[in-house]
Each structure stands twice: as structure tokens, then as C-alpha cells.
């Protein structure tokens, strides 16, 4: 099955990411999920912010928007509200989404706007060569944390659920099948869906923290991720230092754009003799 390649701008490849960078794995998983669902590529808009992960849209054959640092979800909100029929996907990184874009993230989640957000969490700012991010675990090294990170990281899954996201999953680039399943479910979900993918930055995070290269970072994910279902049956001490993967949250809730369209219909019924705007300008309506 290589129909996922049809979703790439193949003439833009190979990509700019370093050897073994997890971002490629996530991008591949996304295209496979889209191919599996048979989503029309003319009906997809992929939006990103700034950073390594945010370069992904350039390789994808959709209407793609590479925006400003942290702002992808705000741009995506404008697009989705304008044209709710579009499938809007946001590709972002840990810094882009939870630091500079944290406010937009919690508000997009709160609105439950029908956007799928995939966060490529590599625990570091890769594009600027390895500074610690809000997702860098305490004690780990970054170029701006030369003595170890003293800050506490976000638990992104908790953040997403608490903010109101209605589908939340987490996987790793090692657990790529689970990752693909979660992305597929997220794409099918009506509402704000979030998939966090824990991946490696061998060039900066791996090297700085002496974890090793791409292979060792995949090994680390394999050894430290525990599926949420398996974890339920495990004693607490066995979960020390591990992190959970799987589907964490899935609920139905009113979705923002459909609520707004309903509001428009209600208002228009109320003003049923309305002639198209305060100045009778019919060209505004779509």
C-alpha cells in the first residue's frame, strides 16, 4: 500500500529533517490515515506554526499554510469557521503548541472546534538547536538548561482534556501502528481532537542528554511507554518513570462551527424579512 505517497508533494522530498527525526514518522502516519479514510485532498487544509515539525505541510499535497510561531490554531480557527466543510489539520511541535501557542491551544480546545491537532513532541526546540521547552522533562539538558531543566513539564494529555478537547490520544513514533490508529480516530472525530506523538530529536535532545541516536531514542520509547490498558492492571511501582500511551479521552460535545451555523440560521429566521445586511448588501452572504 503506497497510496499514501499520493498525499505528498513528492518533488519537495527528501525533507529537511535530520536522519531519524520522528517528525517524518508522524507525517507518514498522517498520510496513511488520510489514505485509509480516502479523504479527498482538495478538501484538506494543513496548518502549522514555526519549528521543525511545522515544516511538514510543505511536503503535503493539500492547501497548506505555514504560519507564525505558535499561531497555527488561530489561523486554523479562521479557516474552519469560514468553511466548516474543510478538513482542517494542525501540525505543531511541543514548543510551538504549548509555549508560544499555549493560549491558542487551550481556547481551540475549549471551543471544541472541529480541528485535528497533531503535536510532535520531541521535548526540545530543534529548529533553534536544542533549547528546553515546556515539555522537556525536569532534569534533562538543553542548550538553555546546561545544568538540567529545573522546570516542570506539562502533561500534555491532561492539559488537553482539562482545556476541553473531546478526543485525546498519545503514542510514540516507535508505536507507529497505535499512532496511526489514533490519528485515524482523531480525523473521524467531530470536535477538537488531539494526538500527541512522542518522538525523538536525535540531533539535539538525544545527543545533549547522551541518550544516543535515532535508534536509541526509538528504544527509549519502546522501553518507557506503557499502554493505558496494560497500565490499568499494573502495580503502581512498575509505572514509575514510565509514561502512558493510548486513547485517553473520547466524548461527544457540541462542536463550535456547527453551533455557530445554527446560530446564523436562528438569527436569519428571526430576521426573515431581512434583505441581506444592514445596507442590503447581498454579496456578503455565502
Amino acid at each position: 500500500m503506497s497510496e499514501n505517497l499520493n498525499y505528498f508533494r513528492q518533488n519537495r522530498l527528501p525533507h529537511i529533517w535530520c536522519p531519524g527525526c520522528g517528525h517524518g514518522t508522524v507525517t507518514g502516519a498522517l498520510t496513511r490515515a488520510l489514505a485509509k479514510l480516502g479523504i479527498d485532498k482538495n478538501n484538506v487544509v494543513v496548518v502549522s506554526g514555526i519549528g521543525c515539525s511545522s515544516r511538514a505541510p510543505g511536503y503535503l499535497d493539500f492547501d497548506t499554510l505555514h504560519t507564525a510561531h505558535g499561531r497555527a490554531l488561530a489561523f486554523a480557527t479562521g479557516i474552519k469557521l469560514s468553511k466548516p466543510s474543510l478538513k482542517v489539520i494542525v501540525l505543531t511541535g511541543d514548543g510551538d503548541c504549548t509555549a508560544i501557542g499555549g493560549n491558542h491551544f487551550i481556547h481551540a480546545a475549549r471551543r471544541n472546534i472541529d480541528i485535528t491537532t497533531i503535536v510532535m513532541n520531541n521535548s526540545i526546540y530543534g529548529m533553534t538547536s536544542g533549547q528546553y521547552s515546556p515539555m522537556t522533562p525536569t532534569g534533562m539538558l538543553g542548550t538553555t538548561a546546561p545544568y538540567g531543566n529545573v522546570e516542570r513539564p506539562f502533561d500534555f494529555v491532561k492539559l488537553a482534556i482539562a482545556s476541553g478537547a473531546t478526543f485525546v490520544g498519545r503514542s510514540t513514533t516507535y508505536h507507529v501502528q497505535l499512532l496511526g490508529d489514533l490519528i485515524e480516530k482523531a480525523l473521524l472525530h467531530k470536535g477538537f481532537s488531539v494526538v500527541e506523538s512522542i518522538g525523538g530529536c536525535p540531533t539535539y535532545y538525544g545527543r545533549k542528554n547522551k541518550i544516543g541516536g535515532a535508534v536509541e531514542m526509538f528504544e527509549w520509547q519502546k522501553d518507557n511507554a506503557v499502554n493505558i490498558k496494560a497500565a490499568a492492571a499494573m502495580p503502581k511501582e512498575k509505572l514509575d518513570g514510565k509514561f502512558l500511551i493510548g486513547e485517553f479521552h473520547n466524548e461527544e460535545a457540541p462542536e463550535f462551527t456547527s453551533q455557530y451555523i445554527e446560530l446564523i440560521e436562528k438569527v436569519q429566521r428571526k430576521f426573515d424579512d431581512f434583505k441581506g445586511g444592514v445596507r442590503e448588501c447581498a454579496q456578503n452572504s455565502d
Binding site: M1, S2, L5, F8, L13, P14, H15, W17, P19, G20, C21, G22, H23, G24, T25, T27, G28, A29, R32, T173, Y174, V176, Q177, G180, A214, F218
Partner: peptide, 14 residues
């Protein structure tokens, strides 16, 4: 699994 994990989209298994 090689195809799925490949960060470079470089392998397809047929």
C-alpha cells in the same frame, strides 16, 4: 514496520 516507522518515506513493502 520498516515502512511505517521510516521517517523518510523511503520504503514501501509490496
Amino acid at each position: 514496520l520498516c515502512e511505517l516507522r521510516c521517517p523518510d518515506f523511503a520504503i514501501t513493502i509490496k
